[in-house]
Design a protein around this nucleic acid. Structure first.
Lengths: 140, 140
DNA sequence: ATACGACTTCAAGTCAACTTGAGGTCAAGT
DNA sequence: ACTTGACCTCAAGTTGACTTGAAGTCGTAT
């Protein structure tokens, strides 16, 4: 199976050499051998990089992403964790959807002051329900 | 109209005092006055903080968020920009959806090696179409 | 044989977004 | 009058994810 050198990986994945080296340094990917000094990669690394890029776009940290791969480089997460992550992403999708809807509203609503527009307020409130606990009970 | 002091803002918004001070430092929010040393805020700041929190969750930088507010603290973005932002968010939602679907697949597909599973590959390819341009045309 | 260009290492730098710590101030309760 | 607790300032530190720069090494084309 033919190997690809770092330049080719960069070209085909859009990930810079410096970034690839950094990913290797932190143990996220490995180069399989060297040609002279040049790192050589197995073609599968491209799949892995797609996955990494995608997960980053989803707001996962490199550490979290690293945790999604087993030693052999396979995706290997206990099912339970996968569900958790999927739920997290759903959460995020909802937030983004709320934000988008708010923007649309702002674009279309001719009210001079959105801050006081009731439907604007309503949308914001709806997005607030995932907040840290408030301490004050309605005491008194 | 009664003012809220920083502790109350923290309690009701979930945003830490240090963060509020930081936001003020970078010009994202303002405290309206002081009670002794204590910052006092107008209640509307809570709406603004909701919006900030939401936008942050949407991956916007503080600088970008600051750009969404006019001097008076109102949301004020040219319609064209709003559409752009909304499209950006849609983009992100698509990415997240792809990621979630991949995770679901991984959770359900009993194949030993996802990396080679064709439907896994297909999903990844689908998420790749937003990549930087490749230089190599099929020359030769 | 040599020059070229694409890589290499390693340390240091950068950026955003906060957080922490030391030392200080203030108003309200006892 | 004094203590307390919640705030204050300001500088420095932290984290994550890279990037940059200087100095060096190779394989390949000429």
């Amino acid at each position: 199976m033919k190997l690809l050198d770092i330049g080719e990986i960069t070209e085909r994945s859009g990930v810079k050499p410096s970034t690839l080296r950094y990913y290797e340094e932190v143990g996220l990917i490995q180069s399989i051998t060297r040609h002279g000094l040049r790192r050589q990669y197995e073609p599968q690394i491209l799949t892995k990089l797609s996955l990494i890029t995608l997960a980053k776009a989803g707001g996962f940290s490199l550490t979290e992403i690293a945790g999604m791969f087993s030693e052999k480089g396979q995706l290997q997460i206990p099912r339970e964790q996968i569900r958790e992550r999927a739920d997290l992403i759903d959460e995020q999708i909802k937030e983004l959807t709320a934000l988008r809807d708010i923007l649309h509203h702002v674009a279309d609503c001719p009210a001079p002051s959105h801050m006081e527009c009731p439907s604007f307020q309503r949308m914001l409130k709806a997005s607030d329900r995932r907040k840290p606990a408030k301490k004050k009970p309605p005491t008194k």
